Simulated assay, not measured.
Amino acid sequence: MRAVVTGAAGFIGSHLCAHLLSQGDDVVGIDALTDFYPSTRKHRNLAGLVGHERFAFHYGDLLRLRLEPLFTQADAVYHLAGQPGVRGSWGDRFALYLERNVLVTQRVLEAARDTRLPRLVFASSSSVYGDAETCPTPETVRPRPVSPYGVTKLAAEQLCETYRTVFGVPTASLRLFSVYGPRQRPDMAFARLIEAAREGRPFPLYGDGGQSRDFTYVGDVVTAMRAAGRSSWTGVANLGGGSEVTMRQAIAVLGELGCPVRVVAGPSRPGDARRTSADITLARQAFGYRPGTDLRSGLASMVRGVPTPARPGSTR
């Protein structure tokens, strides 16, 4: 396949590019190298990609780049670019989230429509659910985001659905649940936990530790993205890790892996959902999604700093 990946220098984007290349695809990566976290990390993410004979990188802002020439020859576009992070989306910075998550997605969709793009896979988020009415949560549950970030991801997702139903743009929106793995963003919990353990610092835990997440290993996510990009299915689907784990349990696993952390309890933060848990039935039926990495194996790969190998029976 010929693929375009927006947000190619990011945590998930760089893993996706590497996976696509490993499967023989030609990849065009696009990234503006924004300053949400140090650009040196993004350059490191790109280091294993730049120079590959089937990888081309374009630096630039998606609101200003000419996308049509890049999309014209593509079999699939994977739209991962955006402004991440729940806690930073309040207050004056909301305008940035609106621009990078909503306006950018609308421009990507316009280019997809104008070039008659065969497939567009959009990285949505479990944050659209907020405090979901039921767990595990199916896609039929009404979204109730509890953060401005979740609002912008839901708006972008709805734009995808609108362009799909009105103009026939073949979009697949994947609601990602708490993705983790090597090269995880430095603001995310597991990356901060491992850093605190290595530096012997206490870790400020927001909430009582009983809050739970459906942690999903990045290797399973990017494999599912390619599967969705190669399928004919369109719509909205969850991508979860297959089990719900509390923060206390995850911290205990890190301790067993040689990364004990001294936790300092603090108040919960606005916008943090109490529970997330994905019903992944639709993704399994639509494009064969079966997460193959348990939390212990995935965290071990983070501690080592290298991806975990594929296991028999997994989708990786």
Rank of each mutant, 00 (worst) to 15 (best):
G82M: 08
A81N: 06
P84R: 03
D92T: 12
A74M: 07
G82C: 07
T105K: 05
T105G: 05
V86G: 06
D92H: 12
S89R: 03
Y78I: 09
W90I: 12
A74G: 07
R87M: 14
A95T: 11
F71R: 02
D75C: 05
H79V: 08
E99G: 07
P84W: 02
V77A: 05
A74D: 01
D92M: 09
R93I: 11
R100L: 14
R93L: 15
N101M: 07
F71A: 03
R107H: 11
G88R: 04
L96P: 00
L67F: 02
D75A: 09
R107V: 05
D92C: 05
W90R: 11
T72Y: 10
Y97F: 15
L70K: 03
Y78H: 11
G82A: 13
V108N: 05
V77T: 06
T72N: 11
R66K: 11
V104W: 04
Q83D: 12
R66S: 14
L98E: 12
L67A: 01
G88N: 05
Q83H: 13
H79R: 08
A81K: 01
D92N: 08
V102P: 02
S89P: 06
L98P: 00
F94I: 10
D75P: 11
R107T: 05
W90C: 07
R66W: 08
G82R: 06
T72W: 11
R87S: 14
A95C: 11
S89D: 04
V102D: 00
H79K: 10
G88H: 05
R66D: 15
H79A: 03
E68S: 03
L70P: 02
E99D: 15
V104D: 03
Q83V: 10
P69V: 02
F71H: 02
G91M: 07
D75F: 04
A95H: 01
L80R: 00
Q73Y: 12
Y97S: 00
G82S: 11
R107Q: 11
A95D: 13
V77D: 03
L103F: 13
R87Y: 13
W90M: 09
E68Q: 00
G82E: 10
F71P: 03
S89N: 03
D75G: 13
A74N: 04
Q83P: 06
A95E: 14
G82H: 08
G88P: 06
A74E: 03
F94R: 06
V104H: 00
G82L: 07
E68C: 02
Q73K: 13
V86M: 09
R107A: 11
R100E: 13
L96F: 12
F94L: 15
S89C: 03
L80H: 01
V102R: 00
Y78A: 12
Q83I: 10
G82Y: 07
V102I: 12
V86W: 09
V86H: 07
Y97D: 08
N101I: 08
A74K: 01
V86T: 11
V77E: 07
F94M: 12
E99N: 14
R66C: 10
V108T: 10
R107L: 08
S89H: 06
A76H: 04
A76S: 14
Q83G: 10
F71E: 01
Y97E: 01
R87F: 15
D75I: 01
G85K: 00
Q73R: 14
L103M: 12
